[in-house]
Structure formats: C-alpha cells, structure tokens
Design a protein around this nucleic acid. Structure first.
Length: 569
RNA sequence: UCGGGCAUCGUCUAAUGGUAGGACGUCAGGUUCUGGCCCUGAAAGUCGAGGUUCGAAUCCUUGUGCCCGAGCCA
C-alpha cells in the first residue's frame, strides 16, 4: 500500500492539489462568514451533453465540498424553455453518477424557484429597483450604448410603481406577445460594466417548459435566477468560469437589494484541451454533420464518449486533480489525459493477447494436433489478479508488424533466421517465409525450442524480443476499433488560425479492424470491461459487443518507444 | 476606445518578501518473457523596463501581450 504505484488508493485529501480557492474558503471559515459551512453546487443547463470540461467543474465543486466536510448540490439551470429538454437531465445525472459523485437527494432545478423569483421581482418593483420596459430588443440594444460609450435611460425607466406592478402582472398573465415587454433592473445605464446597464430580469416566452409546462409565459434570465437559486439553497461558494466575472457585481447587487443569504461567487479558468474542441456549438456541429457517430462516439470529449471508449472515471478524477485550478486561461496537453488513462489502466486492466492484423506462423517441429495450456499472469502490476491459461498449438497468429523480411537494425522482432520469445510460451526461430502471387508474405515457418518453455528450468534463455500471439485453432474473431485524436492540429478551436475547424479533422481518427483474433476468454467480455491487449494498448468492450461478435474500442495506445525509434530511422 | 481579468520550463501548476519545485512531454541510460510498467540522470521557466528592500516570481510604477464583455443565451 506504500508502493507509489498504488497512490490511487491514498485518501482523497492527500491527492487534493492546492488551488487558489482553498485560501479563500479558509479565510471565510476563520472569519465565520458562513458559520464554517461550505456548500457548493454544480449547475449545468440541461441543453446538451457534459464533456471533460464539465468534469473539471464537477470535480472542483464536489471536491471542495468533500475537502471541507460540506455538501454539493446538483442544480439544473433550466430558465430557457426554448433550449432545454428533459432528456438531457437524465444524461447529465448519469454522467455525474459515473464520475462517482453523490448529490444525496439534493437535486434541484432553477424552475423550482420560479414562484419565489417572481415574488422577489415584485419586491424589487415595489422598491423602485425594477421596471417594465416597452422598448423592442433592438431599441434596448441601441439604448445600451457601446463598450466605450455610456447608454441612455429608457423612456419607460421612470414609470410609477403602480404602473410597473400592473404591467408586470399583465406580462405574467399572458396579455402581451413574446418580446413586447421585459422587466429590467434599474441600476446604472452609464456603468462601465454592461451587465449593470439595467439588465433584463424577465422576458416573455410563450413556450412550454420541460418541468413547469405552460404555468409560466415569462421566464427569468440567468443573472436573475442564478444567484437567487444559490441563495435559496444556502450555497456558500458559487464557483463558475471566468466569463462570469463581469456578472459578479450584478450577482452581488441582486442579493444585496433583496437582503437575503449572500454566497461568494468565485471564478476559475475553464478547461481547454489540445487536439479537441469543447465548445457546445462545435461539438454539436460534429454530431449534426456526421463527422462522428453521435454524442457518445468514442472520439468525442463528452463524458459519454470517454465512457464508451473505455476511459475509467478514476482517470478523469486524476486528470482533474493534476491540471489544477487557476485564473489564467490555459490549454492542457491531451498527452496528460492519455497518461492518466494509462496510469490507472496499467494497475487495473487485466492483460490479454489479441492479434489485430494476423499473420499465420506454423511451427514445423511442433506435433500436429497437439496443444498445451500455458500459464499466463493476468497483471504483472497486481499479483492478486492471478493467472489464466492460454492454449498453444502448432499454428498461431502473430501481429503482421512483428515480422519483417528485411528488418532495420534494432528490430527485435521476427525476421528470417531471428529468434523471438512467444509470451508465456516458447522461443521460436524463423526458418522460411511463404509468399503469395504478389510477393506478399502469407505465412512464416518457424521451429521452436522445446527447452525454452516459460517457467521451465531452461526457460530462462534470453532473446531480445517478445511477441504476443494467439493459437489459430483456439482464437476467436473480433472487431477492433482503433481511435486516434479527433484533430490533427493542437488547437482546432482557434478560429483565426482555422476558420473551418472541420478541415482539421484527423482522417485516421477511426480505423475499424474486422479480422482480429483474440483469446477465447475475451468473447465473454461484458460491455465496458477493460483490458490491456499485450503490447497493443488498452481496450474496452464496446456496447455493440456480443459473445458471438466481440467488439473492442482502443481506449489509448501503450507508450511506444519503438515507434519513436523507427520514425527517426 | 471603455470596464474587468491574466502573464512562472514546450504544456499544466506550486512557491503567501527568504534555496524557483512538481507533473506531463522531450532527451540519455538501467531493468524487463509487454520496445509497457518501474528506476536513474539531463535539458528546460519568473513577459520587458524602472523602483522599494539586506533580499522580489511575490510589493510599487510603467510598458507590452493575451483573454472576457455591447443576448429578451447560460
């Protein structure tokens, strides 16, 4: 347990890296600002699927609650009925659950608070802090001014409280058409912060809501709903991304105007990852334009995509811990994510032998019709994983790339006259190469050394290379889907460098291999089961997989030092 | 142009006025029945200019660069 390899088993707190939010919370706890309480929330809008960037937020919010012995709510920010759908709610729940977080029944919706929000709006009107504006959307935009010039007051800004109350009541009663009127806060049309130039609180939207149906025809804007929802839930620290920084003065203004519980908003930098895109719009385009097979395509950075590809949730946690939390915009190298996947899989995934591109090898001096059961360790990193047996016989398959008729130097694999170890079995020597009409290698003839069996007294003889293999008679056919990063360039989301991000798509992001041969035990893999295919990478059974037709997704390759050497020549 | 924010190895992130450290990546080597894992080592950073201080990544001034903001989206 003290083995550094097993640090994943260390208590959460020990792996919890420092970030700038901790001292802020520590100070609040010292001063007693929130009575020593720490309560966070993860607030997705149910209008799409969660991705790895959301995982950073989820791990942060739930992680802070865990670190400080507090709680974290799951709250759906469903204030826009034209974009949100119930089906996303279940998908989001599933993703958060997959990451292993439990919101303990504290599942809330901004729509739960529509009544309270309405009453508070009336309170603001009574206090002269909100008014109904008849200006059109275009006019409001014009009156708002620009980044460098102040706005102007709406001609409707100084209506009486009675008139505002009446108009707001009629807005709610459905007397006006969409867009005809809005309720705005009366703050400061000259503010340098555009969010304070009389922001809209309510707009008229005669659209059914996924939870409240047609109860409402006016819906609160994000700014009006979010802070108050935090307040109602007793949230202490409202963690959000950097683009909401300009909204904080408004967040504070509403809570102060209402005189209710006032959480602290804290902003952090959202995650960017190389070789992928994380914008909802671009992800949607990938799905809609058929560049990927769906939201859970294993190439997608969505949590459902990662899950289907076989990424363990522990790796996502580890990744989120390692990237840290800061206020500077940054782009994390996807190599770090891949490392986290390998790091966990190395310790957790049982080894199996699978030949992806088969080449037949006949061992001439091995008796026909004979076979033996070789003992194979399931995971050299985990003795407790035990052993299994693998059938060996006269005809086997090896990987095509593990044989070269005319090998470069430093090639440790099979070649005419060369010797290699067959993992868990014998040392063989290549005696002859059989070719087809086009001169292609179709079969390799070898002789084995009976004294070299794995685990035998004489088995210790050293050879440079060790190959994985399967017995031709025993192996089963399988489909294997090889995935690579979706984009060839580091930052496909950079619209200046790449106006059309789909032009950066990696043409080799998916390669389907249908004639693979795998150990028979693999046919019984259940969807989601993860393995290391020896020397080939980490794989997981796809949800399409059946015992008759097993299908595996490559989650990530192994580190490949040979590929690096070969590339350099 | 106005308001807000951010600049530390290639990348991400620590250092709370006192030895600039870790991780990924890269390179070199060791070990190995996985060219995996593991182990050892190396290269690699405080945006620029002034100032305060015994001492500055940290504080001050100033410059530069980048990000966010003009939805009845979130």
């Amino acid at each position: 347990m003290n083995d550094p390899k097993h640090r994943q088993d260390a208590p959460e707190a020990e792996r919890n890296a420092a970030n700038f939010i901790h001292p802020l919370i520590d100070e609040d706890n010292r001063s007693g600002r929130f009575g020593g309480r720490v309560h966070t929330r993860f607030p997705p809008e149910p209008n799409g699927y969660l991705h790895i960037g959301h995982a950073k937020s989820i791990c942060l919010n739930f992680g802070l609650a865990r670190r400080y012995g507090g709680q974290c709510n799951l709250r759906f920010d469903d204030t826009n009925p034209t974009r949100e759908e119930g089906r996303f709610v279940e998908a989001i729940r599933e993703d958060v659950r997959w990451l292993g977080f439990d919101w303990g029944g504290r599942e809330y919706f901004a729509s739960d608070y529509f009544g309270q929000l309405h009453d508070w709006a009336v309170e603001l009107i009574r206090a002269g802090k909100a008014y109904v504006d008849d200006l059109s959307a275009d006019a409001i935009r014009e009156y708002r001014g620009t980044l460098s010039e102040p706005g102007r007051d709406s001609p409707y800004r100084n209506r009486t409280v009675e008139k505002n109350l009446d108009l707001f009541r009629r807005m709610r009663a459905g007397e006006f058409a969409d867009g005809e009127r809005v309720l705005r806060a009366r703050i400061d049309m000259a503010s340098g912060n555009l969010n304070l130039r009389d922001p809209v609180l309510y707009r008229i939207l005669k659209a059914p809501h996924h939870r409240t149906g047609d109860t409402w025809c006016i819906y609160p804007m994000y700014d009006w709903a979010h802070g108050q929802s935090d307040s109602i839930e007793g949230v202490t620290h409202s963690i959000c991304t950097l683009e909401f920084e300009d909204h904080r003065p408004l967040y504070d203004w509403f809570l102060d105007a209402l005189g209710v519980h006032h959480p602290q908003q804290i902003e952090f930098a959202r995650l960017n990852l190389t070789h992928t895109v994380l914008s909802k719009r671009k992800l949607l385009a990938l799905v809609n334009n058929g560049h990927v097979a769906g939201w859970d395509d294993p190439r997608m950075p969505t949590l459902s995509g990662l899950r289907r590809r076989g990424v363990p949730p522990q790796s996502v946690h580890d990744f989120c811990e390692r990237i840290g939390v800061a206020r500077a915009n940054s782009t994390v190298d996807i190599a770090l994510f891949d490392h986290c996947v390998r790091d966990f899989m190395n310790r957790a995934a049982p080894r199996m032998m699978a030949v992806l591109r088969p080449l037949k090898v006949v061992i001439e001096n091995y008796p026909e019709g004979r076979s033996e059961e070789m003992v194979a360790e399931n995971n050299p990193e985990d003795p407790a994983a035990g052993t299994r047996t693998v059938s060996f016989s006269r005809e086997i398959f090896i990987e095509r790339e593990d044989f070269m008729e005319d090998p470069p130097k430093k090639y440790f694999r099979l070649a005419p006259g060369a010797e290699v170890r067959l993992k868990h079995a014998y040392i063989i020597r290549c005696e002859k190469v059989m070719k087809g009409a086009a001169g292609e290698v179709v079969e390799v003839l070898c002789r084995y050394d009976p004294e070299s069996k794995s685990g035998q007294a004489q088995g210790g003889r050293k050879v440079k290379g060790t190959l994985h293999w399967v017995s031709a008679a025993h192996a089963v056919r399988a489909e294997v889907r090889l995935y690579e990063h979706l984009f060839t360039v580091e930052n496909p989301g950079d619209e200046k460098a790449h106006p059309d991000f789909t032009a950066c798509l990696n043409p080799r992001s998916l390669e389907v291999l249908t004639d693979c041969r795998v150990e028979p035990g693999l046919a019984r893999a259940n969807p989601g089961d993860r393995f290391q295919f020896l020397r080939m990478g980490y794989f997981a059974a796809d949800r399409d997989s059946t015992e008759k037709a097993p299908v595996f997704n490559r989650t990530v390759t192994l580190r490949d030092t040979w590929a690096k050497i070969a590339r350099k020549g």
